[in-house]
Computed example of a mutant assay.
Amino acid sequence: MNAAPEEITSLVGREVYSSNGVFVGEIEDIQLDLDARAVTGLALAELNHELFAGQVSGSTGVIVPYRWVRAVGDVVLINDVIERYDAGESDEEASEIAESR
C-alpha cells in the first residue's frame, strides 16, 4: 500500500534524530538537484549543540546527505553516522557534512 505523496515543504520544521535516538537538529531547508528532480540534502538548524560542539558555530547549520535518511514520519531518522562525526572519527561519510549559513 503506497502512502499519499506529500509536499516537499512539509519536511521543513521536522525534527531529525539519529537511528540511535539522538536529536540532531531541525530541518530548515531542502537541497535539491533540479535536473534529476531529487532531494540531495537536508539543511539543518537548531542543532544539538553537544553533538556539534566545536565543529560549527551557533549561527551555522549543516547539510546532511539525503541518502542518510532512513525514515520520514512525524520526525526524520538518519543513519548514526552523526555520532561517528561527533566522536571525531575520520569516516569519509562523516566528512560529507557541510556547513551552511
Rank of each mutant, 00 (worst) to 15 (best):
E6A: 04
E93S: 15
L47R: 02
Q55I: 13
S18A: 12
N48C: 05
L42A: 11
A36H: 01
S95T: 06
D35F: 01
R70Q: 14
R84F: 09
I30M: 05
G25E: 05
T9S: 10
V16C: 09
V72M: 13
A71Q: 15
I78T: 10
L77A: 12
R67G: 07
G41Q: 05
S19Y: 04
V39G: 02
F23A: 02
D86V: 07
H49G: 08
A94S: 14
Q55T: 14
Y85C: 14
I27F: 02
R37T: 07
E6R: 00
Y17E: 10
Q55F: 13
I30R: 01
V16H: 06
I8K: 00
S100W: 09
E28D: 08
V64H: 01
I27S: 01
D33N: 11
G61F: 11
V62F: 10
A98N: 12
V24H: 05
N2D: 00
L34V: 09
T9I: 08
N20H: 06
R67H: 11
A45S: 15
P5G: 02
V75I: 07
L34H: 07
E99T: 07
S19M: 09
A36R: 02
D86P: 05
L42Y: 04
G73H: 14
E28P: 01
Y66T: 06
S90H: 11
S59F: 06
E28V: 02
Y66C: 08
A87Q: 12
E96C: 14
E28S: 09
G25H: 04
L42I: 07
